[in-house]
């Protein structure tokens, strides 16, 4: 099975391990992520201004190109996913804006594409039972806190992935890998997102509260589905440690990295230099 794949700006560089592990795990599960040729930026934020059609041009172009290749587009980065899925929703529900934007980009788009997150592919196309059947190294006993953040779940009606009040897609995946998903109240809160560039104090505090909440519920490891969450929850730990005596860090991995390890991937691909808190001891302690 091949899927058209939109990597976005970050996944070949700062978020390379997210992409590498996602592709490797996909191969182990029997599907390939095929890069959309000549893709452009998704826009990085969904335009909330109703009069700002120009901001829809770039994501609509991505959708139009993907549509030429099939009826599904897969993303890994939660930001891209959110922007493309919401743009697609506009295209599906607002004919006037669709006409305006497609005319501007000079590409037809029939709004016939389905934008899927990698997690949705695992749940709805592959099936978590099938994933469980491919596990080589059971993550048994590993207490993992899944972090949803904002972008996968909200707005509920448009993202339509899971219930923002009680999501389970991440937990179900972790359970399929044999891990013990940690339920904690902050799992769908905001990490501070792009505010890290503007108000890093806000991003640091938000991320600290998330990590403290996950730790407080016994998490040994936290996984994300977003390079922005990953950056805030991971990179901000140095800042958190400065601001708080006795701060205890928490290793943070992209979920695909953990998935790939469980499916037989080499844990040594996890580069400790890329992490504030080294994830390897936690994995080694579980014999991984």
């Amino acid at each position: 099975m091949n899927y058209t794949y939109f990597p976005g700006c970050t996944l070949y560089t700062k978020g390379k391990s997210f992409d590498d592990a996602g592709k490797a795990a996909g191969e182990r599960l029997g599907f390939s992520l095929e890069e959309l040729p000549s893709w452009t930026c998704c826009g990085a934020t969904f335009p909330l201004a109703e009069d700002y059609d120009m901001a829809l041009a770039s994501p609509t172009r991505v959708l139009a190109h993907s549509r030429q290749r099939g009826d599904k587009l897969v993303t890994l980065c939660a930001v891209c996913h959110n922007v493309l899925k919401r743009t697609n929703h506009v295209m599906k529900t607002n004919d006037e804006r669709r006409a305006k934007v497609t005319e501007f980009i000079e590409e037809p788009y029939d709004a016939g594409l389905e934008v899927l997150h990698y997690l949705e592919v695992l749940r709805d196309e592959i099936g978590f039972e099938a994933v469980a059947g491919k596990v080589q190294k059971n993550l048994s006993g590993l207490r993992v806190a899944p972090f949803y953040g904002c972008l996968l779940l909200r707005p509920k009606a448009e993202m339509a992935m899971d219930d923002p009040d009680a999501p389970s897609i991440f937990e179900d995946l972790l359970a399929a890998l044999g891990a013990e998903p940690v339920d904690y109240p902050m799992k769908a809160e905001c990490c501070g997102a792009f505010q890290v560039v503007h108000s890093d104090a806000m991003a640091t505090r938000c991320s600290r509260e998330i990590i403290a909440s996950a730790r407080g519920r016994g998490a040994e490891l936290l996984v994300t589905a977003c390079p922005l969450c990953q950056f805030n929850l991971e990179d901000r730990q140095a800042e958190m440690a400065r601001g708080e005596q006795g701060f205890k860090g928490l290793p943070v991995l992209y979920f695909t990295e953990l998935l790939d390890v469980a499916l037989g991937g080499d844990p040594d691909r996890i580069d400790p230099d890329k992490h504030h808190t080294d994830p390897r001891p936690v994995l080694q302690a579980r014999g991984l």
Binding site: V79, V196, L228
Partner: peptide, 19 residues
């Protein structure tokens, strides 16, 4: 060099009048 592109581009969109 540390910050992911997505952080910078999102911030540009939210905080700059580039459009």
């Amino acid at each position: 060099e540390r910050a992911p592109q997505i952080a910078m581009i999102s911030a540009y969109r939210k905080f700059l009048s580039l459009s």
